[in-house]
């Protein structure tokens, strides 16, 4: 890593962990915490979708894993009395395992076929949450306690959220930390031989397998990592809202995850983060338009597709800028 990149990363971390909390404290706009926390969590999910794009699959099923992760965390906290901190990785792992089972058959599909199945998966997950008794059907799971204390060898790392003066800030810092970790992992994947192999899959699966790449394994691996991200994001969302319903993540959310990636650009690791920020903030700002919010948002989207059908960051490509 060269100095310039190192400075960029340092600047980014400074902005996320120092500038933002300072700015919010100074302006008194505490509601921005919720928005930015959501952006951070959604961009973790979008990072997963981006990784599936990276192996050449259009994934419109991330909402399903966010929902699953949320329920796993909620059920474990409420029924088994496990600490939120332990449920966080468990939610991710549960999603990864499920995605392996689902991925083995469906990752053989390509293009719109894979896209269709993943979209169906989102809806089926919602219906399953409605039908099962462990998820408590349409009533959902509510009154989930805030995350408790996280301690290691008697040393308190994160204090009990319920005792905090400002849990909003704490959730923001938690989400931002997870986001930074996720993108660091993603960056490492893409810039190691692993990413090279993923790109070989994206560009030509047959050739990849003829040079000895275990394409089936790599596809499932990428999809499992993607779903792990989705599950983590869902679990934290549930901790914030202290409740989860079958409609907490629906088809629209899955489509949005895909949009974040696409808007940010598929050739850039930090594209999904940028896309999430722009779209989520855009949507939030449009709330002043009240009932016209969706109309303006969708019109803007359509106009954008007409103007730059290859994605916003394709404008950069024209100038010869590549990763």
């Amino acid at each position: 890593m060269n100095t310039q990149k190192l400075l960029g990363v340092a600047g980014f971390l400074f902005a996320v962990f120092v500038l933002v909390p300072w700015g919010i404290a100074a302006s008194g706009r505490w509601d921005f915490y919720y928005t930015l926390t959501s952006v951070a969590l959604l961009s973790i999910g979008a990072a997963g979708v981006w990784l599936t794009f990276y192996i050449g699959r259009i994934n419109i099923g991330q909402g399903a894993y966010a929902l699953m992760g949320g329920y796993v965390s909620a059920v474990l906290i409420m029924k088994a009395g496990i600490s939120f901190w332990a449920t966080l990785p468990l939610a991710g792992l549960f999603c990864a395992v499920i995605s392996v089972l689902i991925g083995l058959p469906i990752l053989r599909l390509r293009g719109v076929y894979f896209a269709m199945v993943t979209l169906v998966l989102t809806e089926v997950t919602r219906l399953t949450a409605l039908a099962l008794s462990v998820t408590n059907g349409a009533k959902g799971i509510t009154s989930i306690p805030l995350p408790g204390e996280l301690s290691l060898f008697g040393l308190t790392i994160v204090p009990d959220f319920a005792t905090m003066q400002n849990p909003k800030l704490a959730f923001y810092l938690l989400a931002a930390t997870l986001m930074v970790l996720s993108y660091a992992a993603l960056w490492r994947i893409v810039n190691s031989r692993l990413g090279h192999l993923c790109r070989s899959l994206q560009q030509n699966e047959e050739l990849a397998s003829s040079i000895g790449v275990n394409t089936a394994y790599l596809r499932v691996l990428a999809y499992a990592i993607s779903s792990f991200f989705g599950g983590i994001a869902g679990a934290v969302f549930v901790a914030i809202s202290q409740s989860i319903y079958p409609s907490s993540f629906v088809v629209t959310d899955s489509v949005n995850f895909m949009l974040y990636c696409f808007l940010g650009g598929l050739g850039y690791v930090f594209g999904p983060m940028l896309g999430t920020l722009l779209l989520y903030f855009g949507w939030d700002l449009l709330s002043i338009a009240k009932q016209y919010q969706l109309l303006i948002y969708s019109s803007a989207m359509i106009a954008l597709m007409l103007a730059v059908p290859n994605g916003v960051l394709s404008l950069l490509d024209r100038k010869g800028g590549r990763k």
């Binding site: 895909m258 969708s298 019109s299 989207m301 359509i302 597709m305 059908p309």
Partner: peptide, 9 residues
């Protein structure tokens, strides 16, 4: 994506 935009619209 265009189709998704039209669905929202």
């Amino acid at each position: 994506l265009l189709a998704a935009g039209i669905a929202f619209f």
